[in-house]
């Protein structure tokens, strides 16, 4: 049963990002990475944050994940302000993050092992999530025997196994080819719908964001602010077939219009920084 059939999106926000500011450096060298950002994610909703490279997406990911505690404003789960990793948030990182010395099943069961869950129970739960990400026949394989996409699925299963309230992902498919990315997108959509999983995806990939999301938060280039929040009214349950639809193309074009200006600023900024570096030898 899909989420759309099961329950309508609850109105209570699962996550609130409230006027968050993050600055790096000191004195005259201060760089504002995130500048007064506010948005919320409802229970069961899939929200993507999209912006050009260098706009502060990863900083926002680290703040929401509790890896950066020194920030202004508030990221809240319920009434609790996040200032350290929170058990309600499960993180999937951009870089490949499986443990090469553990088998797939031991990787997935790892968070449960830390929680002291008895072995038989943690193996059962790990089996379930490995099956969910489609790696049932690779339980005893080591990461070195898997492809990049399979390793990311192991990371996703490892995050889901502790049943976090919010799944937070930072460009998990960035290193994968377009076809694998689309297919993994299907997998993520399927899992999200099956678990009614509140998900926040940080990405710079426009098609990925539209394919997966209920809403997209478009960020400006440095300092990172919310430029616009776009509702994606594509039907659910959704598969990668949606990329061929007119509505999909319409959303991609609309968001690209917003992003183009920001991406151009980012590119100009990088070029002038490179020129300065070249001038200084």
């Amino acid at each position: 049963m899909s989420i759309s059939e099961k329950t309508p999106l609850a109105q209570e926000p699962a996550l609130v990002v409230d006027d968050v500011v993050k600055r790096f450096g000191r004195g005259t060298e201060i760089v504002t990475a995130v500048d007064h950002m506010s948005f919320s994610v409802k229970q069961g909703e899939f929200v993507s944050v999209i912006g050009p490279s260098g706009c502060g997406k990863s900083t926002l990911f680290n703040i929401i994940g509790g890896l950066l505690s020194d920030y202004e404003g508030a990221v809240k789960i319920g009434e609790e302000r996040i200032s350290a990793p929170h058990p309600a948030v499960g993180m999937v990182f951009q870089e490949e993050s499986t443990f090469p010395w553990r088998t797939v099943i031991d990787n997935v069961a790892f968070p449960l092992e830390l929680q002291g869950v008895p072995k038989s129970e943690r193996m059962d739960r790990a089996h379930h999530f490995i099956d969910m990400v489609g790696l049932a026949s690779f339980e005893n394989a080591f990461p070195s025997q898997l492809s990049g996409g399979m390793k990311q699925r192991v990371s996703i299963a490892r995050t889901l196994v502790s049943q976090p309230k919010i799944l937070l992902m930072d460009e998990p498919f960035a290193a994968l080819d377009e076809q694998t990315r689309l297919l993994l997108g299907d997998k993520i959509t399927q899992i999200q719908q099956e678990l009614n999983q509140t998900t926040l995806l940080i990405t710079h990939n426009l098609t990925e964001a539209v394919q997966l999301s209920d809403r997209i938060v478009v960020m400006t280039y440095r300092p990172g602010q919310v430029k616009r929040i776009v509702d994606i009214n594509l039907p659910r349950p959704r598969t990668s077939d949606v990329v061929g639809s007119d509505a999909f193309g319409h959303y991609v074009a609309e968001i690209w219009n917003d992003l183009r200006e920001e991406a151009s600023r980012g590119m100009a900024d990088s070029e002038s920084a490179a020129s300065r570096r070249a001038a200084h030898g």
């Binding site: 990793p85 058990p87 993180m91 990182f93 443990f99 790892f110 968070p111 830390l114 502790s162």
Partner: peptide, 22 residues
């Protein structure tokens, strides 16, 4: 790899767990 340390941090591992398990 820093990402493995971040995985440990995100799972709220103690420094002893971080040492022995990562």
């Amino acid at each position: 790899r820093p990402v493995l340390i971040n995985v440990g941090r995100s799972l709220k591992m103690t420094s002893s767990q971080m040492f022995w398990k990562i």
